[in-house]
Design a protein around this nucleic acid. Structure first.
Length: 438
RNA sequence: GGAGAGGUCGCCUAGUGGCCUAGGGCGCCGCACUGGAAAUGCGGUAUGGCGCAAGUCAUCGAGGGUUCAAAUCCCUCCCUCUCCGCCA
């Protein structure tokens, strides 16, 4: 149950429209509504019979204690009543289970409606809300005497500087599993360290280092199964899944928990390797490290009071931007349109960094507010007041940032005409050098 | 991986087929007592579903089974602890 039956009954129109806006089938909403009323009817019947059976069983106990013979006629009559009720219950419960199963199937196919301020439409309706930094184009007049020079794609620069080894990665594992070497390896370490330091020391987030594998319950919690199983590598023998993002283990940290109001917000920053099968898209983005099966990422995961989540998304997005700004990388922020944002998000910003070598925008972060959609599936709640009835929290997450493409952008942005590379100032304390030379 | 012991209400614990509608203690909340407090006493303190409500149903690690009736008996699985093995 993701949208919630209560909400489905209260505002079916909004949910129906939400489905239409996201390009999903709105008739599921009405089918679910019908199934829900059938379910409630069966539930009522079942419970009435169970109450009867419980009462009869109780009377048997009382009669026996009161001195009646366990096999006497009085007890036998009561026993019969209980057995009869039991038979009916079995039948109704089977119907009920079927209805509930079907309903659940429908419910998970109803998308989270987008926030009102999200543009309706496909990719072309997504909006660039802001751009930061100087866009270096391929032909740049050198500041120095070197004259005009052409920026190369990151894989050429990296090959000269021996920063990663794609061929050997393919040999030992497969294509899309880069091996970072020498200064490239050090750059990975430096970036992870830098990002976590900024998020914890300056942004007040709590650092988490989660497992890279999760069980089926966790994969279900954040919705990777049953919908996106193709995304993940699965260790079938042990029924474990390699995480496609730290969002999965970190959000599941609080599955089935109830917070007190003063515990919120809870804001985590977590490093993890990310594993993605992403089968298709042959020929697209395949060169270099733009599209790989394993990459590293620092992810931010927030648990917020509902009234704060709108603001929290803006803050979260800005925290990811801080990293790009400190690294001196030009980027833009996109507000994703309804059909471009995904099934479970209520609102989503993508951060795209400018890569001057390949002359393209690269997605390095995706920041989303899920409102209570994820929290419902995982039963993550809080008490608005001490002793009050628990309510669902709002969850948000965003990359801060994904490494491979950020590395590509750094290499392409900081490359020099002589083939060397300057280390971004923010990373120098971590890299312990100012430049990388062949 | 092997052997053993366990998993009960926020925490500790009782509970070995029907008086469990899960008892007691701690903690917490309210009230009383007090100048105020401590101590004491009284009451209340899980989650979810259905219902306008009264209420009712489900949940004692999870799932199945036996029974008129399961926290309690049986089966499978998960987790924790102790010891052994293996291992960075």
């Amino acid at each position: 149950m993701s949208i919630g039956l209560a909400r489905l009954r209260e505002e079916p129109d909004r949910i129906r429209q939400g489905a239409i806006d996201k390009g999903e089938d709105p008739s599921i909403v009405d089918a679910a509504l019908a199934l829900d009323s059938k379910r409630r009817e069966l539930l009522g019947d079942s419970e009435r019979l169970k109450a009867e059976r419980n009462a009869a069983s109780k009377e048997i106990g009382e009669a026996i204690r009161g001195g009646a013979k366990p096999n006497g006629p009085e007890v036998a009559a009561l026993r019969q009543a209980s057995t009869d009720a039991g038979a009916k219950i079995e039948k109704i419960d089977a119907e009920l289970a079927a209805a509930e199963g079907q309903l659940e199937e429908l419910m998970v196919r109803i998308p989270n409606p987008a926030d009102p301020d999200v543009p309706v439409g496909d990719e072309s309706a997504s909006q660039v809300v802001r751009t930061w930094g100087e866009l270096l184009t391929k032909e740049v007049a050198a500041e120095s005497s070197a004259g005009a020079w052409t920026r190369r794609p990151h894989w050429e620069v990296a090959a000269d500087l021996k920063m990663f080894d794609l061929e050997r990665g393919a040999k030992i594992t497969g294509s899309g599993f880069p091996v970072y070497t020498g200064p490239g390896s050090r750059l990975q370490r430096a970036l992870i360290d830098f990002m976590l330091d900024v998020h914890t020391e300056e942004h007040g987030m709590t650092e988490v280092w989660p497992p890279a594998m999760v069980n089926a319950a966790s994969a279900r919690g954040t919705g990777q199964i049953p919908d996106k199983e193709d995304l993940m590598y699965i260790a079938t023998r042990d029924e474990l899944y390699l995480v496609p993002t730290a969002e999965v283990p970190v959000t599941n940290l609080h599955r089935d928990e109830i917070f007190e109001a003063d515990q919120l917000p809870i804001r985590y920053a977590a490093y993890s390797p990310c594993f993605r099968r992403e089968a298709g898209a042959a020929g697209k983005d395949t060169r270099g490290i733009l599209r790989v099966h394993q990459f590293d990422k620092v992810e931010m995961v927030f648990f917020e009071k509902p009234e704060n989540s709108t603001e929290a998304l803006e803050w979260l997005t800005a925290r990811a931007e801080v990293i790009l700004q400190r690294l001196g990388l030009a980027y833009r922020v996109l507000l994703m349109a309804t059909k471009d944002m995904g099934f479970v998000q209520a609102k989503k910003y993508d951060l795209e960094v400018w890569a001057p070598g390949v002359e393209r925008w690269l997605e390095v972060s995706s920041c989303s507010n899920f409102r209570d959609y994820q929290a419902r599936r995982m039963a993550i709640r809080y008490r608005p007041e001490p002793g009050a009835k628990p309510e669902l929290v709002h969850t948000l997450n965003g990359s801060g940032l994904a490494l491979a493409r950020t590395v590509a952008a750094i290499i392409e942005t900081y490359q020099q005409p002589d083939g060397s590379m300057i280390v971004p100032e923010a990373l120098r304390p971590y890299m312990r050098r100012d430049s990388i030379k062949a």
